[in-house]
Amino acid sequence: MICNLCPRQCGAERTPEVGKGWCRLPSVAKVARAELHHWEEPCISGTKGAGTVFFSGCTLGCVFCQNGPISHENQGKEVTEEELYALFEKLAGEGAHNIELVTPTQYIHVLQKVLARPIPGDLPVVWNCGGYERVEILKSLEGKVDVYLPDLKYVTEELAEKYSAAPDYPSTAKAAIVEMFRQTGPVQLEDGILKKGVVIRHLILPGRLAEAKRVMDWVSEQFAPGEVLFSLMAQYTPCGNLEQFPELQRTIRPSELRAARNYMDALGIQGYVQELEAVGEKFIPDWNMRENE
């Protein structure tokens, strides 16, 4: 396949065995882990866990990514469409509240077909992504995805280029989130579990409180209170090679989180604030689906 799925539109050839271009991934889906996941927002994980499938690869290049082995190194196990659907069935059978697809953008061509089938247990489908999506491609998911869980990492082009190699990220992610909301409408909760809607995540980076405030300003201006949920994340953990980025070589300070929380409250944005207890490599999953296993 000649791939233009993500905003980079590199036109790379992705054969079943080999991938070129930005993501360097084959056309066959690769999965790094599938499990009941209890570390998402309460409306996603609930009491039983989200039925989470972590996909290998990523369309961004975040220097601080804590999932580097799968996002940058593409670790994972290739699965057929039938095997992927069987994972959905297994997770539903284990009592998952939903089927959550994490970093799935590079496999939209596969998921369009798999999600066209009845979802086991009639569970809501959650699209957990970095926010870097083409609106034209998102439209192909309408009616197949119930909950969107995008990041809004930056609204400043310079930061997006410096940390994620994507200067077009702010405009692209904002347009994508607007499309996501068009598809789902306002949040719909049932017994505390999100059945339909959008949850926008923002990871506070050390020394970037002003950017967190700019992100919240946009959310507040774009959506009426309660139309979407917002997740202010404090879990930043220095990972990977940050030698060129000394400002990222620490966790965020309690004062930064406190100031961000107060700003969120002042804007009347509804959602969640992650505590600093979530910081640390102990919260990074073991990527247990590997080739030859």
Rank of each mutant, 00 (worst) to 15 (best):
W127Q: 05
T156N: 02
Q9H: 07
I44A: 01
L205D: 00
N74A: 12
L101G: 02
G21F: 14
A175Q: 15
G131N: 04
P104N: 05
A266P: 00
S27R: 10
N288G: 04
S231A: 15
Y107M: 06
S140H: 11
N288T: 14
T59H: 08
Q244Y: 09
G226K: 13
P16R: 08
V279Q: 15
N292M: 10
A176R: 00
N4H: 13
D217I: 09
H37L: 03
R250Y: 08
T59F: 01
E211S: 05
L111C: 07
F54L: 08
Y263Q: 08
P186Q: 07
G130M: 05
F283Y: 14
E291L: 07
L232I: 04
N292L: 12
R117K: 15
G268F: 13
K213W: 05
L60A: 02
V135G: 10
N67P: 05
A224P: 00
A260K: 06
T251R: 11
R214N: 11
K30Q: 15
V79F: 12
G95H: 11
H72K: 14
V125T: 15
L229T: 01
Q235L: 10
T251I: 11
L189H: 00
L257H: 07
N67W: 13
A165K: 14
E73K: 12
G268C: 10
Y236A: 08
A224S: 15
L205V: 09
H72W: 14
K213E: 15
E227W: 09
F245D: 01
T172V: 15
K213V: 11
V228I: 07
L194T: 02
K282G: 09
V273L: 04
P16G: 12
E41F: 03
E142H: 13
V18R: 05
I44K: 02
A259Y: 13
E291I: 06
E190P: 02
E227N: 10
V18Y: 14
P69T: 10
K139N: 09
Y132Q: 05
A166P: 12
A92H: 07
P167K: 09
P167V: 10
E73Q: 14
I44M: 02
V31Q: 05
V18L: 06
H97Y: 12
W287C: 00
R14M: 14
K162G: 08
V135E: 14
G49Q: 06
D122G: 07
S27Q: 09
R8C: 04
P254G: 07
E73H: 13
N98F: 03
V63I: 15
L60V: 11
A175R: 10
V147K: 01
E190W: 07
I252Y: 03
L203P: 01
L232D: 07
R261P: 00
N288I: 10
G49D: 09
K30M: 13
G207T: 00
Y263K: 10
P238R: 08
C62G: 06
K113T: 09
L5M: 10
E100P: 00
L229Q: 10
M216W: 07
E17N: 07
F245E: 06
D191V: 01
H97M: 06
V126G: 09
V110H: 13
R24G: 02
N288K: 11
G130I: 05
